[in-house]
Amino acid sequence: MYHDSHIAQVLHDEHLRIIDLMNRLEGFTTGRKAKNAPDLDNAVASTLLADLNAELQGVAGHHFDFEEKQIFPALTAIGDVAIPHMLRQEHDLLRNLSEVMLPMVQKARGDGFTADDWGTFRDLALELVERQITHIQKEEMGLLPVLSEVFEEQQDGELALLFAEA
């Protein structure tokens, strides 16, 4: 999709992976079946919780840290202040949500959900899905298309490598 910027393509691919996880999480926490705490003995639920655990533990954090250290300063330097500021605020918010949800996910992976835990988890999960999706929508529209104009070809390649290595 982003033929003219490697780093934009890498970040876009990351977005696709996160969207897939968010779609699965949304499916798990909505609908008639989601009214009661689910049985976690099936492969779909346990894989989802394992992937969510990994995501909350730091996979998304890596994505956010990379953007904040490598991408946003370059945008701010050319006068694009508001969009990086807003995206950074959203990163903080998603980090906070991750911190709250992580212990719940870890407990559920060991002992399953109690009825109370499930209600709280479901609300937080739906908030995470919505905030992640709208955050990605903003990055896809307002951030990634700019990157080919901000970074030269060599720097662009280096950034893509840096993201993969970290």
Binding site: L75, I78, G79, D80, V81, A82, I83, M86, V150
Partner: peptide, 12 residues
């Protein structure tokens, strides 16, 4: 980039 995105701060 600087000149092309000279007023990029006003995008929002």
């Amino acid at each position: 980039a600087t000149s092309f995105l000279g007023s990029a701060g006003d995008r929002l």
